[in-house]
Nucleic acid binder design. Structure first.
Lengths: 200, 200
DNA sequence: ATGGTTATATATCGATCGATACAAAACACG
DNA sequence: CGTGTTTTGTATCGATCGATATATAACCAT
């Protein structure tokens, strides 16, 4: 069903191009990223971009989906896979600092908060995607806490939803500081305190 | 020294125009705000804008200074003036929700995190202003806590710096959600929990 | 091979971008 | 008044914006 048999084959990988586009948006913002910047980073021509992704807005929306649902935010993945809950929380924040200050593309901060949020009310469809991404993140964080409660590691009284949101907010603080160019070492210094707040 | 005696007098108020420009940037982002949008909102002509503010980037930098050092972020003002510390913390978060969701200009979220941060690494000079604004905010928050410790209202062991940063981060979470279009009532529901975390 | 189909590269579209040239207008000072 | 100075409104600049028209190239089916 998804294989096309006719026509000239595409000469680039769709996801690679999408990832490249996302990083350009991440670094320069939606309006700050020109089609010239995008096609250069994606290593494709203008017509190829339009042929595959539609237009700039649709490309952006796909980049959001790519980030939220496929690229899988690294901190979140680590938090879900690390067995020990305290280590999981610690690694979560560590990954947040890592990916928001040391990205290869030079893009600092978080794609959602430093790029997508800016055009949330201006570009049709973006607000809904952003809302969903926030909701899903809260859900995934809370789910892990609930799992630990069921396992008896966290007390039954542990307020999973509240701590999940708290964790999300602390993350926002970190990525905002990262975007402002504050050195990783200062952000790393906050991590242990953050862990204590989440689990304490 | 600051009075000019010759030439045709300016027909608009500089600060009013600056405030109007800030709100346009706030809502549409730096790159998303065209000079046409700006002059329309400021109710002045193009040459007038360039004559008084230099160029778009300088206007933006002045808008940042206006926000950080003169307009005085409302939540911060309230936090510093309310006598009772618990009420001050509560009002701080309440004001954050208020001004990040119900702005007359339609701009949601926080000017610094939803607009300025996006171009932090792209526009010369912005990163330094942003760093300074973050540092100053942390300082002002911590200072109030220290004051309450000296007054004996907060215990000597109260970690002012850590709680100040925590308050800042919780604020980032709120304004990010606000920018995403999440209803004020959901944000208001988080306030009491936030107060408990800060002072508990 | 031939026809159908899709992707590519080149070249460029009209619109809008940020920024100015210019001259008339409005003040202070003589 | 006339002169100098600054702001204003109009009109427009070259550059860049997002987006396409066109023709060629590369594949599949027959």
């Amino acid at each position: 069903m998804k294989e096309k048999r006719t026509g000239r084959p595409r000469e680039f990988d769709r996801d690679e191009a999408l990832s490249a586009a996302m990083h350009v948006f991440w670094k320069q913002g939606y309006d700050g990223a020109s089609m010239k910047d995008l096609t250069a980073a994606m290593n494709i021509s203008g017509p190829s971009l339009y042929g595959v992704f539609g237009d700039k807005r649709q490309l952006f929306m796909e980049a959001i989906d790519f980030y939220a649902n496929r690229k899988a935010c690294k901190p979140l993945e680590v938090f879900e896979t690390e067995p020990d809950i305290e280590t999981a929380v610690r690694k979560f924040f560590y990954e947040v600092v890592e990916y928001s200050t040391m990205s290869i593309s030079g893009a600092k901060g978080c794609f959602l908060s430093s790029c997508v949020a800016t055009v949330s009310g201006e570009l049709v469809g973006v607000e809904a995607l952003l809302k969903r991404a926030i909701f899903d993140t809260d859900e995934r964080l809370a789910r892990r806490f609930e799992l630990e409660k069921a396992r008896g590691v966290l007390p039954d009284t542990f307020p999973s939803k509240i701590r999940a949101r708290l964790m999300f907010d602390l993350r926002q603080g970190l990525v905002f500081r990262a975007r402002a160019g504050i050195e990783p070492k200062y952000l790393l210094a906050d991590i242990e305190s953050n862990v204590g707040i989440i689990l304490g």
